[in-house]
């Protein structure tokens, strides 16, 4: 069993604009507004990088910055684990359309923005950080896989780790898998030692026992609908439990196995 402590959270989803503003919804005190996901323009990026940064980059940078401010940690002080099933589908689509024509040149900017770690690259530029990043893909299991990896890294390296999750649906004709309709990003600052300002403790284990969506679905049906339609929004069950400061245990499906998460309040 691997234990880590949460010191900061960032969040952007439909009707969920930041951790503090979302607490009422996550605690079930008020309904979620039927608003589209806000896509902030990160002030961190230089103007020329801002121009190049696509939707998912802006989204991921916003939640990463929010989580680090929440944890009161310098932006360049954490290692990072980025998790995304789809990466930047808009960029990949433009390149695929160009590649379908034999002699059309590719855009060099789109090409270097097409790598799965482009978002993480823009993050390290924006944060002025030399800390290492890794970028994972795990299809609909991306949250559980990236959480297991981030907690492991915090423990193994004895360092704070930023876990940043983001996904947006692929544009047609690419399949609307595994993200459908919903644009979502969340970030967590994970520490190997309990911080003074602690939002919850996590015990994370992997087991080769199958689980289903229902084993990790958020309690609120409106939030469950988001989780069902975006791998990053699978973090909503954890976000609910942290907002309610409740003990919780749930199992995230990972192929024919599961990542079990036990949440305990720091009180």
């Amino acid at each position: 069993m691997s234990r880590a402590y949460i010191a900061g959270i960032g969040l952007q989803g439909p009707g969920l604009a930041g951790w503090t503003d979302s607490l009422g919804v996550l605690r079930g005190e008020r309904p979620r507004d039927a608003l589209a996901t806000a896509i902030p323009m990160p002030a961190l990026l230089a103007p020329n990088e801002r121009r190049r940064a696509g939707l998912v980059t802006r989204l991921a940078l916003a939640v990463a910055e929010e989580a680090l401010h929440h944890a009161a940690l310098p932006l360049d002080s954490v290692r990072s684990v980025f998790g995304s099933a789809n990466g930047d589908g808009q960029v990949v689509l433009k390149l695929l359309e160009t590649l379908a024509e034999p002699d059309r040149p590719l855009s060099p900017t789109q090409f270097h923005n097409s790598v799965h770690n482009a978002v993480a690259g823009y993050w390290s530029i924006a944060a002025g950080s030399a800390q290492p990043v890794t970028c994972l893909g795990g299809y609909d299991a991306t949250f559980g896989i990236a959480l297991l990896k981030a907690v492991s890294e915090a423990i193994a390296e004895r360092m704070p780790v930023l876990l940043c999750l983001y996904d947006a649906p692929l544009p047609p004709p690419l399949p609307d898998l595994p993200a459908r309709d919903v644009i979502f990003a969340a970030a967590f600052i994970l520490l190997p030692e309990r911080p003074d300002a602690c939002l919850g403790a996590l015990d994370v284990t992997y087991a080769a026992e199958a689980a289903t969506f229902a084993d990790a679905a958020p309690r609120d049906p409106s939030l469950a609908a988001l989780a069902m339609n975006n791998p990053a929004a699978m973090s909503l069950r954890l976000l609910e439990s942290l907002a309610m400061e409740q003990t919780d245990r749930f199992a995230l499906p990972m192929l024919d196995g599961r990542v079990t998460v036990e949440v305990s309040p720091c009180r």
Binding site: V115, T134, C135, L136, G138, I145, M254, D256
Partner: peptide, 17 residues
């Protein structure tokens, strides 16, 4: 790789170019 080798542990693809 996990399917071909009959493994059941955690699996992830790392993509940093």
């Amino acid at each position: 790789v996990r399917t071909a080798l009959g493994l059941r542990g955690p699996a992830m693809t790392v993509s940093v170019a």
